[in-house]
Write a protein that binds this DNA or RNA. Structure first.
Length: 1070
RNA sequence: GGGCCUGUAGCUCAGCUGGUUAGAGCGUUCGCCUGAUAAGCGAGAGGUCAGUGGUUCGAGUCCACUCAGGCCCA
């Protein structure tokens, strides 16, 4: 099979478009999955994104990871199913729908009807799937969209019900209360996410961003103690919560003062520094201190209800009291107020907790729209904030107001209506997580995290202090909670676990329930079996959509209704990859549900990616336009470049990345083009030579360069395997880069001539082996790189593979062959490259260019083995540096001077404080003494007893001896003999002529194998060089015929200056 | 307010359990080379390792605090 010759110029995006079509037309992805055995799976879970927005770089990062890793394992022989998933439910969708339908509040939705609302949600939820599909395809990600799952599918939802019913049976579900932010204008609780979206403002004092600021009343109220003619002063900015006051909180460890107000004679309690603050602001007059006591001594004291609405709760069982006493709370601070805090358990998180701890009742006279109900008849029908005025007036009249002022503070506002939010305790459904903490933590320890610190730190800590999970939402578009409750007895409940069960309960025929959304099932009722005459009705809540995505491992396969075995075998997943922001999201919900249901971790390996920022270090923002459109980057530079840019960036190690288009371009230059050019080199010369792959493996015996690059290739394979096994993608790409550099800038560079030489002569075997080696390396490399840059490798593989599979992605991943690894050879080549590098530096110092042959170079090394090694590399070094002879010497002292430093790693722990003296002594060691150490001897220390300076305790540095032109690096010292005789000079001039003629060839865009006729007009030494070295020149520039007559200048010749002599040269293709 | 992460050259980042003169790539300056390459080679400039204090013979690395940025939670 002949290789198609390939030009070095390449249009990667166009190439990628062709490859995409090839994949589509050959069903490459399907084949790559199906050709692997079903028993040997690599399980991948795909975290579902919302389709309500377009994909951005963050999704691309995750997608690149989700493609590279599965492709790799597929090539390693695993069956890797990749099913796409869509997160369809939840608030983002509802918000979008509300916006489009112009529905401001929950009431509006109720009015419209859930059915129509949900229909609208269903209509927009898949709006951008087409764009997603196209972007993901363009990125080269292989994933099955057609068999993908959607969290709104009835099968998926039914599995979610099953998951929930298992938790219900296990007694992990309970109904409770939770203080939540409520938008009274919308009449609905908001998620924290929505709260954070509310209006923001910078605080003028602290300069920190926060909630929009608001002016509220600042009211200080007196609560009359029952056992003493004295009062407790408490402060609030929410007078509307005072009707619901049930306790006062003090900090038990803070000291309080009992004092008398001089003007009125009132006796009261407050925290002393707070009292002083009131006085400083002139709100309270003179006082007389009567005594001090710790807060703990106030705890338990009873006071009279400030307002009468809930005074029935004063009475507890027996002598006890249910409410209206002082409680202890650590959170009470003394930076504001009076140090005594009014408690309304329904209206604050802290209050709620304190209430729970002290057995306080939970009273909430407000509706979701923030209006007082009949419990507070004086203000019934009034909006809470509007009632402030009336309440204050009422209290003032009753003589309960100590002070009234205003207070400006940051306060959360509704993100949609801009009105201030109210916090209130609402009934919700919880899953018990706290008792599972230990198990969660131990399951997490079975998971391999990349980077490790996320698992042990961030995620581990979160699990260790996990709280019960509030998994219900008072919304419409979601999977409904499958709880049916009796309208007569609220404790009579049934948890439904399947469609079939619901049909049976409701007396419907089998298959009647096809959709589980609220609009399809809320009306379904059935009679209670426990409560006579009771009717079972579904509770109104839907699931937190995280519960649904966390159920994905089961629900995507409609477990346990179908695929029982498959799902149970698929647990835990081998691999998932998501962003750092999923710590409390998907990572968490997967772990909690898997632990609760199966007692297993949900995933074995996880790569956590960081956040992609714009080039300016800020968040990418559509309005700021601070980042380039992903699709334009893909069209300009290609997906391979973008993939490798992302995969080698810190973002795959959970760090943030400043996205720079130039960074992507850099990948084209440093990875793709060199690879392409190596490939182009092979195909073009193979074409010229008529070489074809013959199925013969390259030999390591013919030429050390071949053995070397094959050895390097095995090292690369081993490194990649190791790093992929650890999921450390960010460490793979640098290894690839290093190899590509070795291949192009050393192997091919050093081997070029092997490809040019005529095949008929003694070099035939060497030439054939060079082809075979380069071919083998490139073909192997196309497989190694395939998961990372799937397009360019497909193209290369398609041309090179002979009898191979129709896609590189169907190949088996190459495995390192340790018999081809030769550490000694790699070491030798390393030494040669150091020597060459030093030699090049010396040429520059001497100002002698490479084209000028030099008589000799001397390399000095102390180590005998190294010297022998380098001698074996003499030809390569001579050729690369254009020197006639390579001398290897051990006589370092002739060229370098020694200096020494203490080897602190050895001496530090042993001689700690003596280091000063040691350092001084070492500085004073003579060249002879150091020479002795270098030679393997030792020198007795006089400063420190028992210390010997030798190769272990000293680090000897070499420097060029003054007056010599040498250079030294890593123990290799190089000196160059630059004396020239006429012979060398002539040869140098001949090479100059070659250089000029090659320039003309290039200028005239001749093909690699075009033969030329050369005419040169010149005189003196140049003419002599032309005559003497014509054979060499002709061979180099593919000239035909005898040496030109230098005395006649060509008519159309181009004039050159060669070392101060002039030459006129003309070439013509023959 | 709490948890976690980040701060090293103009830019992007390495720097393992503390150890010697803090590295790489890109960019930049000068020079070289080019018979695959948009490349390559050589030399140079560029750093108070965010700051302060501490532990230690020795701190970019460990500890404490501060500052700045980020993610998540409240």
């Amino acid at each position: 099979m002949k290789l198609r010759p390939v030009r070095p110029e390449v249009d990667f995006p166009a190439l990628e478009a062709r490859v995409l079509e090839h994949w589509d037309s050959t069903d490459a992805f399907q084949k790559s999955v199906e050709q692997r055995p079903e028993e040997d799976r690599f399980v991948f879970y795909d975290g579902p994104p919302f389709a309500t927005g377009l994909p951005h770089y963050g999704h691309f990062v995750a997608s690149v990871l989700k493609d590279i890793v599965p492709r790799y394992w597929a090539m390693k022989g695993k069956r890797v199913e990749r099913r796409w998933g869509w997160d369809c439910h939840g608030l983002p969708v509802e918000n979008e729908t509300q916006k489009e339908l112009g529905l401001a509040s929950k009431a509006d939705i109720d009015e419209l009807g859930i059915e129509r609302f949900n229909e609208a949600c269903r209509g927009i939820v898949l709006r951008y799937t087409g764009e997603w599909r196209q972007s993901i395809r363009r990125l080269g990600r292989w994933v099955d969209h057609d068999r993908g799952y959607k969290t709104m599918d009835a099968d998926f939802m039914e599995s979610v019900w099953w998951v929930f019913s298992r938790l219900w049976e296990d007694g992990r579900i309970y109904e409770g209360y939770r203080v939540q932010p409520v938008s009274p204008a919308l009449g609905t609780p908001l998620s924290n996410f929505e709260v954070a979206q509310g209006p923001q403002e910078r605080d003028p004092v602290t300069k920190k961003d926060g909630h929009k600021r608001r002016q509220d009343p600042s009211l200080t109220v007196r609560f009359k103690l029952e056992d003493e003619d004295a009062s407790l002063w408490a402060w609030t900015t929410t007078p509307w919560t005072l009707p619901s006051n049930l306790a006062l909180a003090v900090n038990p460890t803070v000291e309080y003062v009992r004092f008398k107000v001089s003007e009125t004679g009132e006796v009261a309690y407050a925290e002393p520094s707070r009292l002083a603050d009131y006085q400083a602001r002139g709100r309270v007059g003179e006082t007389e201190e009567l005594g001090r006591l710790p807060g703990a001594e106030l705890v338990g004291r009873r006071y009279r209800p400030l307002l009468p609405y809930f005074e029935q709760y004063a009475e507890g069982e027996g002598d006890a009291r249910r409410a209206f006493f002082v409680v202890s709370a650590d959170y009470v601070e003394t930076s504001s107020g009076t140090g005594i805090v009014h408690q309304a358990p329904a209206f604050g998180e802290d209050d709620f907790q304190t209430g729970k701890e002290n057995g306080l009742p939970l009273v909430n006279p407000l509706s979701l729209t923030g209006h007082f109900g009949p419990d507070v008849p004086d203000f019934e029908g009034q909006f809470a904030k509007d009632a402030d005025k009336g309440i204050i007036a009422h209290l003032r009249a009753a003589g309960s107001v100590v002070d009234q002022d205003t207070y400006v503070h940051p306060y959360p506002h509704c993100y949609r209506t801009g009105t201030p939010l109210l916090y209130m305790a609402l009934s919700t459904w919880f899953m018990e997580v706290e008792p599972m903490r230990d198990e969660l933590v131990s399951n997490n320890q079975k998971t391999h995290w990349v980077p490790e610190a996320v698992g042990t730190g961030r995620f581990g800590n979160w699990l260790a202090s996990a709280r019960d999970w509030n998994l219900s939402r008072n919304r419409f578009w979601g999977t409904p909670l499958p709880i049916w409750r009796c309208d007569e007895d609220p404790s009579d409940m049934v948890c439904v676990s399947s469609r079939e069960q619901l049909e049976e309960l409701c007396g419907l025929e089998k298959g009647a329930v096809t959709d589980l959304h609220r609009d399809r099932i809320d009306h379904l009722t059935f009679p209670s079996t426990k409560t006579a005459g009771g009717t079972m009705r579904r509770v109104p809540e839907v699931f937190d959509c995280w519960f649904e995505s966390g159920s994905m491992p089961y629900a995507e396969h409609h477990y346990p209704f179908e695929n029982r075995e498959l799902v149970e075998q698929n647990l835990p997943a081998d691999f998932i990859a998501e962003g750092l922001d999923q710590t409390r999201g998907w990572f968490y919900t997967l772990t909690v549900l898997s632990t609760a249901l199966f007692g297993r971790p949900a995933f074995k390996n996880v790569i956590v990616n960081g956040i992609v920022l714009a080039e300016d270090g800020e968040k990418m923002s559509k309005s700021k336009r601070n980042f380039p459109d992903p699709s334009i980057v893909l069209e300009k530079l290609g997906a391979d470049a973008l993939r490798i840019y992302l995969a080698s960036s810190p973002v795959v190690n959970a760090k943030s990345l400043r996205f720079a288009e130039d960074g992507v371009r850099e990948q084209v230059r440093s990875v793709l083009l060199p690879l392409w050019n190596a490939y182009s080199f092979l195909t073009r010369y193979a074409d010229v030579d008529g070489w074809e792959p013959d199925g013969t493996a390259p030999s390591t015996e013919v030429n050390e360069l071949d053995a070397w690059v094959l050895s390097r290739l095995q090292t690369l394979l081993a490194d990649v395997e190791d790093r992929m096994a650890r999921y450390e993608l960010f460490r793979v790409v640098p290894a690839l880069l290093e190899f590509i550099d070795d291949l192009t800038n050393w192997y091919i560079r050093r081997s070029r001539r092997r490809f040019w030489r005529g095949a008929s002569d003694a070099h035939a075997e060497d030439k054939g082996n060079a082809y075979r080696t380069l071919y083998h390396v490139l073909l192997t490399l196309s497989k190694v790189l395939a998961p990372f840059v799937p397009f360019i490798t497909e193209e290369i593989h398609g041309n090179l593979s002979d009898g191979g599979r129709e896609s590189v992605h169907l190949e088996d991943y190459p495995v390192a062959d340790s018999s081809l690894q030769d550490a000694g050879l790699e070491r030798r080549m390393g030494l040669a490259r150091i020597a060459v590098s030093l030699g090049r530096g010396l040429r520059a110092k001497h100002d002698v260019r490479i084209r000028q042959p030099l008589p000799s170079m001397t390399v000095v090394m102390a180590d005998a083995e190294d010297r022998a090694s380098l001698e074996r590399m003499a030809e390569i070094v001579r050729d690369e540096l254009n020197v006639k002879e390579l001398r290897v010497s051990s006589e370092e002292a002739d060229f370098v001077s020694y200096s020494a430093r203490p080897n602190l790693k050895v001496l530090g722990p042993r001689y700690g404080k003596n280091l000063g003296a040691i350092r001084q002594e070492i500085e004073g060691l003579s060249g002879e003494q150091l020479g002795a150490v270098v030679a393997g001897g030792s020198v007795q220390s006089t400063a420190v007893e028992g210390l010997e300076y030798d190769a272990g305790t000293l680090l000897v540095d070499r420097a060029s001896r003054e007056g010599t032109v040498v250079d030294t690096l890593d123990g290799v010292t190089v000196a160059l003999d630059v004396t020239l005789d006429d012979g060398l000079r002539l040869e140098g001039l001949a090479r100059e002529l070659v250089n000029r003629i090659q320039g003309l060839r290039k200028e005239q865009e001749l093909d690699l194998d075009d033969r030329i006729e050369v005419q040169v007009g010149c005189d003196g030494m140049l003419a002599e060089a032309l005559r003497t070295h014509w054979a060499l020149i002709a061979d180099e520039v593919l000239a035909t015929g005898a040496a030109p007559d230098a005395s006649s200048s060509p008519i159309g010749g181009k004039d050159f200056d060669v070392d101060g002599m002039s030459a006129s040269i003309e070439i013509a293709r023959v």
